[in-house]
């Protein structure tokens, strides 16, 4: 697909969101094109999650317009059924459902029969490297943190959404697990051609995964935009320079970033 063919999956146009008198998002505008992986990067309180909640359609903007697949995600909430999926910072697995049943949650809501749910859920668990009848039947408390997050990602991807939203999905995992999961996820999303918005406060995560990085400074205003290509990603000097520029735009690195 060429850049000219690509259509905008997400469009935010001069969006403000206030909580009382406090602005969480101010005059935020950006577009995310089909098949793109975009990172929304910012310090805690920069308004990233508020922006994400507006894209999800669970929060209404105070001013401006949000469009997902050309639809207003808040006013036309049900119209986006099956078109977007979210994976959160904590896995948020339903404790009473086995791993495969958690993955099948979206399919069940979309009305797929039980057999299809199970087949597709197990296939997706394999895609995220959870294999074996014993593992797919395990309840969340029987899985490790990394496995639970993999189940959470499989649950998001299982409904075959146009748009995948990741809200700090890798930030609670240890460095090694997080790295492995990021690599697997990025490969999978690129292979499937999914559009993906990644919310993170970690500069390295954004540089590693995203095609484009939108740096937000509190309240969520676009402070910097960085395009990343595979060639640039392997250029350590460029990465170092961008890391410094992004950190400056964010107003300094967030806690834990150095780790």
């Amino acid at each position: 697909m060429t850049a000219a063919d690509a259509r905008a999956v997400i469009e935010l146009d001069r969006v403000d969101r206030y909580f009382g008198a406090h602005p969480a998002v101010l005059d935020l505008s950006f577009r995310v094109m089909e098949g793109e992986i975009v990172a929304l990067l910012g310090r805690t309180g920069a308004g990233k999650s508020t922006a994400l909640h507006m894209i999800m359609g669970v929060l209404e903007p105070t001013r401006g317009t949000v469009r997902v697949e050309g639809l207003d995600p808040y006013a036309q909430f049900k119209a986006l059924r099956g078109k977007l999926a979210v994976s959160f910072q904590n896995d948020r697995l339903l404790p009473w459902r086995a791993a495969w049943e958690n993955v099948a949650l979206g399919l069940e809501i979309l009305g797929f029969d039980r057999e299809t749910q199970r087949d597709r859920a197990i296939q997706w668990l394999e895609n995220v490297k959870i294999v074996g009848e014993e593992n797919v039947r395990k309840y969340p408390h029987e899985l490790s943190g990394g496995m639970r997050q993999r189940v959470s990602l499989a649950r998001a991807l299982c409904v075959d959404p146009e748009l995948v939203l990741l809200d700090e999905s890798f930030s609670q995992l240890d460095h090694v697990t997080s790295k492995a999961l990021r690599t697997d996820f990025t490969e999978l999303v690129r292979r499937l051609g999914k559009t993906c918005v990644l919310i993170t406060h970690r500069i390295d995560d954004a540089l590693e995964m995203a095609d484009r990085i939108l740096v937000l400074a509190a309240p969520a205003k676009l402070a910097l935009e960085v395009r990343v290509t595979p060639a640039l990603r392997s250029d350590s000097d460029w990465l170092e320079a961008q890391h410094a520029a992004i950190a400056a735009a964010m107003g300094g690195e967030d806690e834990g970033e150095a780790a």
């Binding site: 999800m56 669970v58 099956g82 979206g106």
Partner: peptide
């Protein structure tokens, strides 16, 4: 509320 939110993302 985390569980409510995750279920609602699928628009049930």
């Amino acid at each position: 509320t985390d569980l409510v939110e995750v279920v609602e993302t699928f628009r049930p």
